[in-house]
Simulated assay, not measured.
Amino acid sequence: MDFDLTEDQRLLTESVVRLLGDTYSFEQRKQMLSLPNGYSERLWRQYAELGLLGLPFAEDFGGFGGGPVDVMLLMQAFGRHLVLEPYLATVVLSGTALRLAGSDAQQAEIIPAIVSGKTTLAFAHYERQARYDMTDVLTAAKHQDDWLLDGAKSVVLHGDTADQLLVSARTSGERDDPQGLSLFMVDASSPGITRHGYALRDGSRAAEISFSSVHLPTEALLGEQDNALPVIERVVQAGIAATAAEVVGGMETLQAMTLDYLRTRQQFGRPIGENQALQHRAAEMLVNLEQGRSMAMLATMMLGEPDPAERARNISLAKVGVGQAGRFVSQNAIQLHGGIGMTDEYAAGHFFRRIMVFEHLFGDIAYHLDKLADDID
Rank of each mutant, 00 (worst) to 15 (best):
residue 34 S to C: 01
residue 309 A to C: 04
residue 61 F to Q: 02
residue 87 Y to I: 15
residue 280 H to Y: 09
residue 333 A to I: 02
residue 83 V to T: 15
residue 19 L to Y: 05
residue 296 A to T: 12
residue 36 P to I: 01
residue 325 A to R: 06
residue 130 A to R: 03
residue 299 A to H: 01
residue 231 V to Q: 04
residue 34 S to G: 04
residue 184 F to S: 00
residue 161 T to P: 09
residue 93 L to G: 11
residue 111 I to P: 14
residue 319 K to C: 02
residue 202 D to E: 06
residue 9 Q to S: 04
residue 262 L to H: 06
residue 164 Q to L: 11
residue 257 M to P: 01
residue 105 A to N: 06
residue 84 L to S: 07
residue 131 R to M: 08
residue 102 G to K: 05
residue 169 A to D: 08
residue 79 G to K: 13
residue 89 A to D: 15
residue 140 A to L: 03
residue 19 L to I: 03
residue 135 T to I: 09
residue 177 D to N: 14
residue 200 L to N: 15
residue 298 L to A: 03
residue 9 Q to L: 04
residue 218 T to P: 02
residue 354 R to C: 01
residue 240 I to F: 07
residue 233 E to Q: 12
residue 168 S to C: 13
residue 97 A to D: 03
residue 31 Q to K: 13
residue 171 T to W: 14
residue 244 A to K: 12
residue 190 S to T: 10
residue 135 T to V: 07
residue 252 E to K: 13
residue 56 P to L: 01
residue 365 I to D: 07
residue 228 A to N: 07
residue 172 S to N: 07
residue 257 M to G: 06
residue 6 T to I: 10
residue 124 A to K: 10
residue 352 F to W: 15
residue 112 P to H: 11
residue 315 I to R: 08
residue 372 L to Y: 08
residue 133 D to H: 01
residue 196 H to W: 05
residue 201 R to K: 13
residue 342 M to G: 04
residue 359 E to N: 14
residue 196 H to T: 02
residue 46 Q to M: 10
residue 82 L to P: 00
residue 305 E to K: 00
residue 310 E to N: 01
residue 291 Q to T: 11
residue 249 G to C: 13
residue 237 Q to M: 11
residue 280 H to F: 03
residue 199 A to N: 14
residue 183 L to A: 12
residue 32 M to L: 12
residue 4 D to G: 06
residue 119 T to D: 08
residue 182 S to V: 09
residue 178 P to Q: 02
residue 269 G to R: 12
residue 51 G to I: 10
residue 5 L to V: 05
residue 137 V to P: 09
residue 108 A to C: 03
residue 291 Q to D: 13
residue 44 W to V: 11
residue 281 R to A: 11
residue 315 I to Y: 05
residue 373 A to K: 07
residue 37 N to I: 04
residue 158 H to Q: 10
residue 271 P to N: 11
residue 299 A to F: 03
residue 200 L to V: 12
residue 15 S to R: 01
residue 63 G to H: 02
residue 325 A to C: 11
residue 18 R to K: 13
residue 103 S to P: 05
residue 242 A to F: 15
residue 153 K to C: 11
residue 232 I to E: 01
